[in-house]
């Protein structure tokens, strides 16, 4: 399978603290890549360096390269706004804007200059359908997004990300704030979406990674300890530190 993203020797420093240590890996196209590891291991930093959201944190320094389709996203000529349009992100807690369902999904297209109402309606419907939410909200698009349940909000947020037609989807623990049923729905959705997108998901839930990911990377102390096919990583990890973490003998 073709690699959508190639990461080469990526190190990230928050001031004096080194959050990532020379991470080198590749993210496959049209597949789910899960990142696991204990809290503070660098997996979220890795995710947020892919769309340069870590730029928002003062005193951050990045070394190494991240190639998205052969363009280094940290090279000087790169337009961060365009990069972030191409790399969609879903966060840990559902964070719809305090606007209507329609305006939430239309937000991205609008800021990127789409103002034709008919076209907007098409995009909104299509995105909501792809996020498996359309049937539940088609009659109340003008209602506040905050009236939706947590699981619906998370699917809305996914629809919002899909509306700008990204090349990659990043998800930062997308189900950790949801009940098991809603989480299951999101997992199903992720499995469907991988037919179209490469998806990178950070999760604390190893079973979730085992269920939905094709590839899994294990981070520890800012280091990518092991990266392998999910099945292999969870049944027969090669690195003793992965083994120790997976069997709960870590630390």
């Amino acid at each position: 399978m073709a690699d959508k993203i190639r990461v080469r020797g990526l190190s990230v420093y928050y001031g004096e603290l080194q959050a990532l240590r020379r991470v080198t890996t590749s993210i496959a196209d049209r597949a789910v890549t899960a990142l696991i590891g204990p809290s503070g291991c660098g997996k979220t930093t890795f995710l947020r360096s892919l769309n340069r959201l870590i730029d928002l944190i003062p005193n951050t320094r990045v070394e190494g390269q991240i190639f998205l389709d052969d363009v280094d996203v940290y090279s000087p000529g790169v337009d961060v706004v365009d990069l972030r349009r191409r790399v969609g992100m879903v966060f840990q807690t559902p964070n719809p804007f305090p606007k209507s369902i329609f305006d939430n999904v239309a937000y991205g297209p609008r800021i990127h200059g789409l103002s034709n109402q008919r076209r907007l309606e098409e995009v909104v419907e299509q995105s909501l359908r792809r996020a498996a939410l359309w049937d539940e909200v088609k009659d109340k698009l003008r209602h506040s997004a905050l009236d939706l349940s947590g699981g619906q909000q998370q699917r809305l947020v996914i629809a919002r990300a899909l509306a700008v037609e990204p090349d990659v989807l990043l998800m930062d623990e997308p189900t950790s704030a949801l009940d098991p049923i809603s989480a299951g729905r999101i997992e199903e959705l992720i499995t469907e979406l991988k037919a179209e997108y490469p998806i990178v998901i950070v999760t604390h839930n190893m079973q979730q990674a085992a269920r939905i990911a094709d590839w899994t990377g294990f981070f520890l102390h800012g280091e990518l300890v092991e990266f392998a096919e999910t099945e292999r990583l969870f049944t027969a990890p090669k690195e003793p530190r992965t083994e120790a973490y997976l069997t709960g003998r870590y630390g």
Partner: peptide
């Protein structure tokens, strides 16, 4: 318990 790795094996 959903064991992993060597525990699973």
């Amino acid at each position: 318990q959903q064991p992993m790795a060597s525990d699973l094996r």
